[in-house]
Amino acid sequence: MNMDVRPSFLLDGEEIPFEPGQTVIQAALTAGHYIPHLCYHPEFVPHGSCKLCTVKANGRPAAACTLPAQAGLEVESETEELNDLRRTLVQMLFAEGNHFCPACEKSGNCVLQALGYDLGVMTAGFRHFFLDRPVDASHPDILLDFNRCVLCKLCVRASEEVDGKGVFSLAGRGISRRLIVSAESGRLADTDIAVTDKAVEVCPVGVIIRKHIGFQTPIGRRRYDVRPISAQALEDAPRKPEARHG
């Protein structure tokens, strides 16, 4: 007999209890149900930009990371239609940057790559932009490879909210949107970023790199070698219900 008296919603036909203030993705992950996501991070205010966590709530598309959980809501996530759209989104992210997984030190630890594998992205799908984006290697301990940015804004949020530094910003609009360094010179060396900053740790792809240590983890022991992202995300999910959202 279910003694849980918390309110609940339905996710793919299963009842998901939630605490007031939780979003759909927070409640789902806490309850052990994975919804694919990229720009969502349990420690930060949801951004809702990547749209990978798009679900259908009462038949209408919505980002699960910003959608407040509501009693009686009927949510679809694990459907072929939605996963097909997610695959397309991942393909677009790959096409917009220069993601050369074979030589990328983030390979095996990269959220974008792991999502590609988990969702079964088998082809490029789109013509790649092949943008010319030089790296910023000016900082002695940290390297920025803008080629791999997916505009998740996690570094911007971490630098502002946790590090209190505001090292990164997003500039431009639409297709010109890009990550920039908040310094007059535009160079990372001219900021007060430190290798221990949350902004360095939080990058889900290979943009913000700690220098000199690439490839130190052997193949087979990297984060997503051990388990797919759908299982790893549940491993990482807060054990207790979280109420934080935007």
Binding site: A103, E105, V135, A137, L143, K211, F215
Partner: peptide, 14 residues
């Protein structure tokens, strides 16, 4: 050229 040195052994083997 323009790539970090620790990436080289993995990249050039391609």
């Amino acid at each position: 050229q323009g790539r970090p040195y620790w990436e080289v052994p993995v990249m050039v083997q391609r």
